[in-house]
């Protein structure tokens, strides 16, 4: 494998062919802020916060560190005044959409942002697309970027509560500004997006204790995506808690009943 000689912020380092600037920077403990990057997903370069300057030929050019593959010897500047100025504007513009995000607030302090410059847009999303990409990786059918032009937003198909959601919560977990919520109420799991219910997933009721748990991830769908067709979905009629307790009771009976230690508690052990 060819080794590339890169000058990273004035320091000579080596990089692997095709390695992204972000990977290289992290290897060498150079911090580049990111919003829409996740190691589990393909880079989308949507937030542009990781923009750096690269000089491969004569002129410096602006590229996003998360997906720019190094193919030639180059000089990389991750923190030039121009880059800092651009990042400052990105943060200011995103803060106008989403002023309460701790992540953005911290970056705003770092970059000395003037938060008075842009009138608030009162949108709670920074449109980084992480949730839609995570969703696509898991089920591919629930969340996507909808809307024309600058009115782009995360939404379900036809703005209706989606039928395809498996309630895995990946979107909730990955959102950098914590604006997607999930709650389990009335025997269903709800994903709440822009204050609206984006999907409802029925939660199964435990045949043992009667509590709702779950959700039963539609394994059939997941397996299909992974290319495994024959595995049947597991039997999940008992909640994990009951299942654990029932197993303990079973084992207890088997090993300790003979010593008379174990006493049956109104047939609960039979339920499992």
């Amino acid at each position: 494998m060819k080794v590339l000689n890169i000058v990273l912020n004035g320091k000579a380092v080596t990089a692997k062919m095709g390695q992204t600037i972000l990977e290289l920077a992290r290897e060498h403990n150079v911090f580049i802020p990111t919003l829409c990057d996740s190691p589990a997903l393909e880079a989308a370069a949507m937030c542009r916060l990781c923009t750096v300057q690269v000089i491969e030929g004569k002129w410096p050019k602006f590229v996003t560190a998360c997906n720019f593959p190094l193919r030639r010897d180059a000089e990389v500047v991750t923190d030039s005044p121009e880059v800092r100025h651009g990042r400052k504007l990105i943060i200011e513009l995103l803060m106008a959409r989403c002023p309460t995000s701790p992540e953005l607030q911290r970056l705003a302090v770092d970059y000395g942002c003037d938060l008075e410059r842009f009138a608030p847009l009162n949108d709670d999303c920074v449109v980084c697309g992480l949730c839609t990409r995570a969703c696509e990786a898991v089920t591919g059918r629930t969340l996507s970027l909808a809307g024309r032009g600058v009115a782009i937003h995360v939404d379900t198909a036809f703005q209706k509560a989606s039928e395809y959601c498996i309630g895995c919560g990946a979107c909730v977990q990955i959102c950098p500004v914590n604006k997607i919520a999930m709650e389990d109420v009335d025997g269903e799991r709800r994903i709440i997006l822009h204050g609206k219910i984006a999907s409802r997933v029925k939660l199964p009721q435990c045949t043992s204790c009667g509590k709702h748990f779950g959700p039963v991830i539609d394994l059939q769908q997941v397996m299909e995506r992974m290319g495994e067709h024959k595995i049947p979905p597991p039997n999940a009629s008992v909640c994990p808690e009951c299942s654990r307790r029932n197993l303990a009771i079973k084992l207890g009976k088997r090993y300790f009943e003979q010593y008379g230690v174990f006493e049956d508690e109104e047939g609960q052990a039979n339920a499992g």
Binding site: A45, M46, R48, L49, A96, V127, L145, V150, I152
Partner: peptide
């Protein structure tokens, strides 16, 4: 007509 994907163009 912008696709709205990236922050600088959209915002």
């Amino acid at each position: 007509e912008s696709c709205g994907q990236c922050t600088p163009c959209r915002e």
